[in-house]
Design a protein around this nucleic acid. Structure first.
Lengths: 219, 219
DNA sequence: AACGGTAAAATTGTCGACAATCTAGCTAGC
DNA sequence: GCTAGCTAGATTGTCGACAATTTTACCGTT
């Protein structure tokens, strides 16, 4: 099993995962104050556990904490989203470059299979649930980079925040077919071991995605 | 004052900073087991404080923790260093791009002054302590990006680990004058608001730096 | 002598209580 | 009527003790 499929083992883990889920999905609204005592009764654990969970959430940039005052869920802003996508552009661009270098032929073949299955789904059922497939695609390339720091930063760092934006600002956007074409070209570049091109295409892909989201936000 | 000059306020903060310093500077050797009880007596605080500090160190990628087993200081490896520099290349490259876009004319003028003062120092005293000046230069550009996520990732994330490598593998390298020229060109690009070029030069600069370090490691 | 299993010691995980700090509301003074 | 300072309440920070898990040491068996 991949070492990045985190499994909760301790109570603090479970509380952290639960809280993260609730925050990302908006069950706990953005900007909410997180009271330690309140949460400890709500989740039936001691305050120490909640404290540890909140600390981890802070490390994930999902909450902000002030000493002696408390923690609040971050509030979402257009600027924040732009900042996130700038980072994704550079980091996932690098991931694509490294994937072109480091993925095995087998992994690349798998990636192509994944893409084909997406194509079938899109073909059959005009609207398909983009999110899962898109995330899956990006995950594979990130993992394909074989750079553990990079993987960790994206998968247990930035991606949850990105998802929080997506869920709460309601981004079940179209861009399905165009995004699909972009994915196809990226895979092609990786298959050709063209690092330069893979990075460039991934950066563009994320840039387009950012623009698409921005155009919706302005409205 | 910049919001990224962290000030210790609580006991956990102080312990965290102290531990981080000791780890980065090798006072606590790489690979060492971090015993909570031991550290709590050593630093005269409760175990809860030490625990919190260790958790934060884990978030900074300076220690690795296993549930019910304990935490160890990360061990340094050539591969790890390469991974780090790959991330720096992409992230600081983006920082330079954004700095070219977002720094004020005043900030750019300041940056040029800094560079000139470095030039004087190098001129006067052939060997000068590169580290501080180099770090200062990179800091300014990172801050100049005005992207808070990016800034935080680099300054209270990756940079401590990079410094740990530098200190412990004894990188008071030469590359002073050549690095200086590279810095100069980057500032020039930023001054011209040439985002593309600024990013490209910064990426090259870090790539050269990486190669320089690699060549020393192989020996 | 080597191996496996069991019990004791040590270490981490969790808890509830106390101390320090911040917040809100009230009183007093202008 | 408004502001400043104080007091009471609530919240976070810190601590020591207990519970659960892992590691170590010992013993008996082969």
């Amino acid at each position: 099993m991949s070492p990045f499929t985190e499994q909760p083992v301790t109570a603090a883990d479970k509380t952290f995962f639960q809280l993260r889920k609730d925050i990302v999905e908006g069950v706990i609204a953005a900007g909410t104050k997180l009271s330690e005592t309140e949460l400890s009764t709500k989740y039936s654990v001691s305050r120490a556990i909640v404290r540890e969970a909140i600390n981890r959430l802070e490390s994930s940039s999902l909450v902000e904490r002030k000493a002696n005052v408390g923690a609040r869920v971050v509030s979402l802003s257009p600027e924040g989203l732009v900042e996130l996508y700038q980072i994704r552009e550079s980091l996932e661009g690098m991931a694509a470059r490294l994937a072109a270098k480091n993925m095995t032929d087998e992994e690349i073949a798998d990636l192509q299979k994944l893409l084909n299955s997406h194509f079938d789904t899109v073909q059959a059922d005009g609207s398909y649930y983009q999110e899962a497939g898109d995330v899956d695609f990006h995950y594979r390339i990130i993992l394909g980079s074989k750079n553990n720091h990079l993987i960790s930063m994206l998968i247990n760092g930035i991606y949850h925040l990105v998802r929080m934006y997506r869920v709460q600002l309601g981004m079940a956007g179209p861009r399905v077919t165009t995004a699909f074409d972009e994915h196809k070209h990226i895979v092609q570049a990786i298959c050709n071991r063209d690092e330069e091109l893979a990075e460039m295409l991934m950066r563009r892909h994320i840039m387009y995605s950012k623009r698409n989201i921005e155009s919706k936000l302005i409205k």
